[in-house]
């Protein structure tokens, strides 16, 4: 009997929550809400949902959700399959880095081959990598500057906590890769980015980079 009476009011709660109820109807509804905790709770709950509506862009939800290309699943399976193989090889690379008892970090040794005569009027040069562990992708460029040569590396596929070491013909750099996927480092006048990094001080020495 009470539920029957509430039903009429309930149907107005959507318009009420969205602020679309004419004043006189609203006054009647609010009088009911004052005496009916159930309807009041429903009004508050729908009010919270109504407050979210302005976040949504109607142009977006009027169209079907975008879908990834059908190949994405296969690419992911291939990457994971590649990592499985690297995982087996990785054991040979592990240097017993015991980082706070958690999973030991693997070290990838990347030899950066700098093309000879870099800089001759060419503003930016792409870097070729002599060897890369499977699953790791590096997009790197060299830019000559007055203070030295800047190398920009965009590395993907490296797990958190991995320490990477690269070496060039004259200089080498070490850069600990943390949670981020990229790090830009400079070969030249600036201090190496790992200096002063508390975490890297705790790292044991890694094997010398390959010449």
């Amino acid at each position: 009997m009470k539920a029957e009476r509430c039903r009429e009011w309930r149907l107005s709660l959507g318009a009420y929550a969205l602020g679309n109820l004419p004043a006189e109807e609203r006054a009647g509804l609010e009088a009911h809400l004052n005496g009916c905790p159930d309807c009041r709770a429903e009004a508050e709950s729908l009010g919270a949902v109504a407050q979210l509506l302005p976040l949504a862009d109607p142009d977006r939800f009027s169209h079907p959700a975008p879908q990834p290309s059908p190949e994405l699943g296969k690419r992911i399976a291939a990457t994971i399959g590649g990592e499985r193989r690297v995982g087996r090889r990785r054991r040979r690379w592990q240097f017993g880095l015991a980082l706070s008892g958690a999973a030991a970090a693997a070290a990838a040794v990347l030899a950066i081959v700098v093309p000879p005569g870099g800089g001759g009027g060419n503003p930016e040069q792409r870097v070729a990598f002599a060897s890369l562990p499977a699953g790791i992708k590096i997009d790197a460029t060299l830019e000559p500057h007055a203070y030295g040569t800047q190398i920009r590396m965009y590395v993907s596929g490296i797990r958190s906590g991995t320490l990477c070491r690269g070496s060039g013909p004259r200089r080498h750099l070490s850069l600990p890769l943390g949670r981020r996927l990229h790090r830009s480092a400079e070969l030249g006048a600036r201090p190496l980015p790992h200096q002063g990094d508390r975490r890297s001080r705790r790292q044991p020495n890694l094997r010398r980079p390959r010449p």
């Binding site: 309930r10 149907l11 107005s12 709660l13 959507g14 318009a15 929550a17 969205l18 679309n20 709950s45 729908l46 949902v49 109504a50």
Partner: peptide, 13 residues
């Protein structure tokens, strides 16, 4: 329309 607005908000919830 009014009741659809109500049931629509409930469905969204």
């Amino acid at each position: 329309v009014k009741s659809r607005v109500y049931y629509g908000l409930r469905a969204l919830r």
